[in-house]
Nucleic acid binder design. Structure first.
Ligand SMILES: [Zn+2]
Ligand SMILES: [Zn+2]
Ligand SMILES: [Zn+2]
Ligand SMILES: [Zn+2]
Lengths: 162, 162
DNA sequence: ATAACAAATGTTATTCTATAACATAACATC
DNA sequence: GATGTTATGTTATAGAATAACATTTGTTAT
């Protein structure tokens, strides 16, 4: 059984802002934020935790829309290319970018217990990684920084995993 | 077709050292480095680039050994638990740890062109990530730092990917 | 308008990655 | 050697991603 995503009926304030922001950015770039792509972005933002591609697909089907895996993966590819979402490689899930507009790799704190994700943007970390790669003559194309652990909220509760 | 791993007939010097090191560590810990587990570790070290689980399975079958996915995944789980290998989440592959003995998450430079991987161990990066998580009251369980790009050797050659 | 072209989506099938569940074998301890 | 534990064998399935091709939609030029 797939994860039960916490999908509210209407997008949160953040989601509305993110969608508006996406509209603006795509318009500026001449990129087409189609109905499908916008809806996928909305689904992602409507969830408190990152979603897998097949969970998104389930929601699209609940919408009454036709669809198969390529449908959602193509939309995700577009959103990734536009820097509107990030993919978390350690979980195979997708989350909305809190700082779209400037393409970046992102740094993520992922809570093992509640699944929520915080996106960091620590330039010192970027700088340090750059120094390390520069010293080795390594050309960077993408950076993946994902930290798995337990968030402050979940630390307050009795541990669920030993 | 699966990737053609560069598997030499005999393990390289590094592989021999790694296997000897693994023997010692497991003996000290009372962990059982069985034939299967040792062979999987050897297969991983015998490749110039990280291997996927199913590539390892193919080699096991070439050995004449019976096996199915759980066979190799269980061996990989053991080797991961012992800190003898790392999993690269961005590629779903496994690579030998260059510094076993001290369990760590590792930091990796992955070449897009030749597939080879360098394992860093920059304590400043660890320290910086710790400071960031401490400031947020986030308890760290695992860190994933993977940098995708092009290694110095491949930069010398004409680019293959534009 | 409409023909021609490009971009986006629909559709079917397949590949790759990983685990669940249960059976058997090997190993250790008493 | 009986018992309990650990490791492996085996079958089936779940989960993630892409290939290949058809159709639709949008854009541009005539
Ligand atoms: Zn971001
Ligand atoms: Zn939490
Ligand atoms: Zn290591
Ligand atoms: Zn290279």
């Amino acid at each position: 059984m797939r994860q039960a995503a916490d999908l509210s009926c209407s997008p949160s304030i953040d989601a509305q802002q993110a969608l508006a922001r996406a509209e603006t950015l795509c318009q500026q770039r001449g990129a087409r934020l189609t109905d499908l792509r916008r809806r996928v972005l909305e689904i992602i933002w409507s969830s408190a935790t990152p979603l897998g591609a097949y969970t998104i697909l389930d929601v699209l089907r609940d919408d009454g829309r036709q669809g198969a895996p390529p449908t959602v993966y193509r939309a995700l590819d577009f959103l990734l290319a536009q820097g509107l979402i990030h993919r978390l490689a350690s979980l195979n899930v997708f989350t909305g970018c809190r700082r779209p507009g400037s393409h970046h790799s992102g740094q993520f704190l992922i809570c093992r217990d509640c699944g929520r994700v915080s996106e960091l943007s620590n330039p010192v970390i970027d700088e340090l990684l750059r120094a390390e790669t520069d010293a080795r003559g390594f050309e960077v194309l993408a950076r993946i920084v994902e930290i798995l652990g337990r968030c402050p909220d979940c630390l307050k509760e009795p541990t669920r995993h030993g």
